[in-house]
Amino acid sequence: MKNNSKLKGQLKSLIIYIGLLLICIVFAILNPTFISPSNLMTILSHMAPLALMSFGLASVMMAGDFDLSLVGITGFSAVTIIVLANQFNLLVGLLGGLIVAVLVGFLNGFFVVKVGIHPWLATIAMMRMTFGLEQILSKGYAQNLNHPFIYWLGHSRIGFIPAQTIFALLIFGVMYVLIQKHKFGYHLYALGGNRIAAQIAGIRVQKPRILAYMLAGVLCFFASICLTGTLSGYTPLATEKMVNDTILAVFIGSSVSKRKVINIPGTFLGVIIMGIFSNGLALIGVPSYWMQLVKGILIILVIVTSSRSEKMVQI
């Protein structure tokens, strides 16, 4: 009996991989370009910014908070980098981008954790503000950045893997250790799981959460570098459509994990799934807007299957 259910559990956890494989096969049959090396590389390189932002969202959400402004931070940081790099040099640009990203992350943490504004409300307002800022800085026009390093990051390969994918994998490694193996991640999990229990165990309630928001800011900065590389510049509001994708990637990540918690490898898998889906659907000729509907329904499904409480929830 027990063995049987164990087997079932293992099958259940495998189902998503089997499903993914099947979908890939279907895509490949319908359009053989799908499995061409160059297309696979495209999928990989497009994934990097989304993956980085999703890692940031995952670390904030683990602690029981939320951040809608990450796409805004990425755009704001990208424009800052470009404007400063064109005015001075790349180093100043990168430094500026990092500073604004961390600063906005800190402000999010401050408003949510210290002041006590609901995370959705605070970060939705922050999202609008950062979108405003990126347009103010860019005056609403697409910005170009010609710099060998940025170009290299966006367009060249190491071996056969795109440079920015390698970069994202490196960050993945760091995040994996930090969240899954380090005390910091453990504290975030404890705070997200039961804030009172964490407090009783002597874990600080505010600091790790604010740090998570700032970490998310740093990750957005990394994402903005990758994006600048791919686009050789930046088009204002290019990240606006990625909000749903980050949320969905994190949710997929938690639903494939054994403990049903948000985690970094799962989030990465979620990003890969999203990448394969949008690329494959595009290749077999499905209009991109259908993808949006699929995502919306997926989010609802994931949300509906998540936790419940006894009485109507109020804010």
Binding site: A125, M127, R128, M129, F131, G132, Q135, I136, G140
Partner: peptide, 8 residues
């Protein structure tokens, strides 16, 4: 876009 920032 300044208006958007101001609103946020």
């Amino acid at each position: 876009y300044w208006q958007e920032f101001a609103k946020g």
